[in-house]
């Protein structure tokens, strides 16, 4: 149990870190309109509608032996932690991205422009205006992605293969327990996951509310 849970945490933590950097950068750069924006966003949000098995299947082909990735880097990533990390990150991407996008979209462009006229350079604007205003949004997106990865089952099963001690995470561990009719142990593990999931979602909601109250005085600019 401990081993599987540790791996779940490690997986969720690493995918959240990747999502914060990649998803955050993408959300910031996609806040302004450009041609083809809707197509790019649709692709990024695709994992929401895709069955985890479909995503897992394509990843398996991509990362498996004789797959294109192996040809490039020399080793197959299927049934390894990096492979699982890639799958989990892709699968949780829409959740994090949507929250990040919301946070950056709510940034009033007037604030950033006015800050420049008050003598602030880009770095100072990021440090003193953008980050303080968007961090609750970023954090709530990160927590949501973390919780989502922690509960992920389909993709990690397909790409990781549920190898105990190597790629078995909490969700696939519980699946194994139920299959082997070990209900007592499954009950314990499930209860723990329930408490964890609730705490994370509760924290996310709390942050969202706090964030709304801070940005409430924001005014949209409509004139040109």
């Amino acid at each position: 149990m401990r081993e599987a849970l540790t791996l779940s945490f490690l997986l969720a933590l690493s995918s959240t870190a990747v999502l914060l950097v990649v998803g955050g950068a993408l959300a910031y750069s996609l806040r302004k309109p450009f041609p083809g924006k809707r197509i790019v966003e649709s692709i990024l949000l695709l994992p929401i509608a895709l069955p985890p098995t479909v995503l897992g299947f394509y990843l398996l082909i991509l990362l498996g032996p004789a797959g294109p990735i192996q040809k490039v880097i020399g080793v197959p990533l299927a049934f390894t932690f990096p492979g699982m990390l890639l799958g989990a990150t892709l699968f949780s991407f829409p959740f994090a991205f949507t929250a990040f996008r919301e946070a950056f979209l709510s940034l009033d462009e007037d604030l950033l422009e006015t800050a420049r006229t008050l003598g602030a350079g880009r770095l100072r604007i990021w440090r003193e205006i953008i980050l303080p205003l968007v961090w609750p949004g970023l954090l709530s997106g990160a927590l949501l992605a973390f919780a989502h990865t922690l509960g992920e089952f389909g993709v990690v099963l397909m790409v990781g293969g549920n190898i105990p001690g190597k790629t078995q995470v909490a969700s696939t561990y519980i699946y194994d327990l139920v299959e082997n009719l070990e209900f007592k142990e499954a009950n314990k593990a499930s209860a723990l996951m329930l408490v964890l999931a609730f705490s994370l979602i509760f924290l996310t909601r709390t942050l969202e509310e706090r964030w709304r109250s801070v940005t409430a005085s924001r005014n949209p600019s409509a004139s040109r």
């Binding site: 007037d110 003193e128 409430a216």
Partner: peptide, 10 residues
């Protein structure tokens, strides 16, 4: 510069 809604940092 003062935009229409003043752009005070909230």
């Amino acid at each position: 510069y003062l935009p229409q809604h003043h752009a005070l940092f909230p």
